[in-house]
Structures are given as structure tokens and as C-alpha cells.
Simulated assay, not measured.
Amino acid sequence: MTDHPAFRKVHDGIASREQMFQLFDRHRDTPGIDPLSGTPYAGEWFEITASTYHFMLGLLPPLFMRTGMFGMSEYKAGYVTSVFFAIRIRTRERWFHGFCDLSDKRSPDAMRAAIIAHETGAADSMTREEKLEAIWNATHPDFKGIAGNVDPDAWPAEHQGKRTILVNAGAQGTVLKLLENLSDKEIDELLSVSLPLRNSRRGGDDADRS
């Protein structure tokens, strides 16, 4: 599996549109690296304004688009492209830009989860709802689904339409559970593999801020 740089915040506060474009080229003159590879940018993220988010959405046809997220069709370099996020954190809508390496198809969801973890003080201070949302967004589509979509008879009527996720149940093997019914232990285990460790990022955060 390819190793990707840790997700890291590179700008304090909310970047203006001008600051955003400056951050897009922040490695242009950095000695000893090849900015054309895209690697120096991969994993970097920062907060933007709502107007900038919508401006970029209308600039080019998106490479992909889904609720609260879209990717730019113009790559930065290699497989690295800009992904823009609209995320509700602590009941407030906020907007972010990140560089994702799409050679890892889970990168946008993993970055979204990392942003939530960083902006809420990491997993130890996240609410249960935020933890479940982070787990859902970082889980590969093959391991999650909607109750009743495939086999309506497999779920009671009151659970149909709810989100489901595969979990390791030990001796029982892998089982399908409602996301909302995950135990605290299961949540902790899934977060440990879904979210980058914040402590490993702190040095990089401080060093990379502009």
C-alpha cells in the first residue's frame, strides 16, 4: 500500500481567495523538492470562505461531486488535485480546501474525517455523533450501506433506510450493524484506523503554517 503524507493544516484562520491562490503555489520555490510531482502538496488543507467554495465550484466542471464535497478536474500534479469540503462542525457550516492524492480513492473521505478531528480537538473531544460521522465518511463503500436497500426482509421496517457498517465481532467474524448501534469499543477501534493520529501531526502543523 502506498504511504501518503499525513494530513496537515497549513494556514491559521480562514484564507481569503487571494491567500488560497498563494497557498496553491506555496512550494514553488521550496529547495530540494519537485513541486511537479504533487507530493509536497498532498495532505495539506486549510479553511476558506463560503464565497470561495462556491466560486471554485462554478469555475470548472467538477471531477467528482457528492454531498458536501467536490474535486477539481484540473489536477495540481500527478494524481493530486484540489478537493473542497462543506462540513458542519459544532452546528456551524464551514468550508475547507485540501490537496488529495487520488491514487488512494479513500483520500477525500479520510481528509474530511481528519479535518473534523482536528477542528474538534481530536477524537477524545468529539461527540458520539461526530465520531459516527467521521467513521462513516472514512469507510470504504464496500463496507457500508443502507439497511433494506439489498434485502428489505433482512431489517425491521423501523430500521430500513438507516446506515449500516461492517464490524469485526471477534469469534462471530464480520457482522453488519446499524451505524447508530456501534458500541463505544467499536467506535474507538474504528476511529483508530479511520483517523490520522493528531499527535503525529502537531509538529508538522506548526512547521507548515504560513
Rank of each mutant, 00 (worst) to 15 (best):
G43Y: 04
H54T: 02
L57R: 15
L60Y: 12
M69S: 07
F70W: 09
S37K: 14
M65I: 13
I89Y: 11
W45M: 09
T39F: 14
E44Q: 12
S37W: 14
G78V: 09
M72N: 05
T91A: 00
T39K: 15
Y75L: 00
R90N: 07
G43L: 07
L60S: 03
S82Y: 06
L36P: 12
G78A: 06
W45K: 07
T39D: 15
F64C: 02
P35L: 13
P35R: 10
Y41K: 02
F84G: 03
V83C: 09
P35H: 13
G71H: 04
I89V: 13
T52G: 02
E44L: 09
A77E: 02
V83M: 05
F85H: 10
E74L: 02
F70A: 01
I87F: 00
Y53M: 04
S51F: 01
F85I: 04
G78Q: 09
F46E: 13
T81N: 07
H54A: 06
M56A: 05
T52D: 12
L57Q: 02
K76E: 08
Y75G: 07
V80L: 06
F55A: 11
L63M: 08
E47Q: 15
G38H: 14
T52E: 10
V80I: 10
M56Y: 00
R94A: 10
M65K: 12
A77C: 03
W45P: 03
G58V: 01
L63F: 05
V83H: 04
G78F: 01
A42M: 06
K76S: 07
T91K: 13
T52Q: 04
G78R: 11
Y79R: 01
I89A: 11
P35E: 15
T91M: 07
F55Q: 03
R92V: 10
T52M: 05
R90C: 10
L57A: 13
S82E: 11
P35N: 12
L60V: 12
R90F: 06
W45Q: 08
Y79T: 07
T52H: 11
K76T: 03
R92H: 02
S73M: 05
L57W: 09
G78P: 00
I48K: 09
P35Y: 14
P61F: 02
S37G: 15
F55I: 10
S51E: 15
R66F: 06
F70L: 02
G38L: 14
T52K: 05
G38N: 12
K76P: 09
L60R: 13
G43F: 05
Y75F: 07
V80N: 11
E44F: 10
I48F: 13
T67G: 03
L36R: 15
F85N: 04
G43E: 11
F64Y: 12
V80K: 08
M56H: 00
A86H: 07
A77S: 10
M65E: 14
P61T: 11
